[in-house]
């Protein structure tokens, strides 16, 4: 195993670590920082894969990731949190140790699931596919277990990180056009979420998505 693969594995481990960090973090600013770190690791990993595999378009992806996920999105969310005067505490539906246990189960499940792909693939990055899948699932788990709209969007973005990671590690990245499109989508999604937050707060005086159960038709 060459050095690049080893560095890549370390980066993958760090991404997974930040994903778990997102699950346990109780403070909302902490969440933002962790998210930014995850983006950074992702960006470095992408650049590294681009260098090793001589896929130069991956550099653009890497820079894009750095700009969007490490700088722009955390900045937007930070502004939102300040503007909306959101509680600094994260409220969860399921308590944190249980969430952790579920997360561990999901990681094991991902490794089990990607075992056949690891056998077939010849890429440098093949061992990280499981991590990528686990990141997606952990993001989804985070969306499920958090009550707050801001934490849900962070979960959503973490999920996207996982997908991006899966794309680079499974096939050395999607075509550049697709990645640009996805990057744009993420940015627009963040804007839409921002507008959405304002509306939820105007309607319910809170950003707790549980309040949206009131929209349901009475039985």
């Amino acid at each position: 195993m060459n050095i690049a693969a080893q560095i890549n594995s370390i980066l993958a481990a760090l991404v997974l670590l930040t994903a778990f960090g997102l699950l346990v973090q109780r403070r909302i600013y902490g969440l933002l920082h962790l998210f930014a770190w995850q983006g950074l690791f992702l960006s470095i990993s992408t650049g590294l894969v681009g260098y090793v595999a001589r896929q130069h378009h991956l550099y653009i992806s890497s820079i894009l990731t750095l700009a969007l996920k490490v700088i722009v999105l955390p900045y937007i969310l930070h502004t939102l949190i300040v503007r909306l005067k959101i509680h600094k505490e994260v409220e969860t539906v399921v308590n944190i140790p249980t969430t952790m246990l579920m997360g561990i189960a999901l990681v094991i499940f991902s490794y089990h699931l990607t075992a056949p792909i690891r056998e077939l693939s010849t890429l440098v990055t093949r061992s990280t596919i499981a991590v990528a899948l686990a990141t997606v699932m952990l993001g989804l788990l985070m969306m499920i277990t958090r009550r707050h709209a801001v934490t849900q969007i962070i979960g959503f973005l973490a999920m996207e990180n996982g997908l991006f990671f899966a794309a680079t590690s499974a096939t050395y990245g999607m075509p550049l056009v697709v990645e640009l499109g996805v990057g744009l989508d993420i940015l627009i999604a963040a804007f839409i979420f921002g507008i959405f937050f304002f509306h939820i707060r105007e309607t319910f005086d809170s950003l707790d998505v549980e309040q949206m159960a009131r929209l349901k038709e009475e039985e």
Partner: peptide, 21 residues
């Protein structure tokens, strides 16, 4: 099925994905 809670809907898709996988 219509719970009115985002989490519930997410659980539906999550469970579906896991089962399919």
């Amino acid at each position: 099925l219509q719970q009115g809670r985002i989490q519930a809907y997410l659980v539906y898709s999550f469970v579906t994905i896991i089962i399919l996988l």
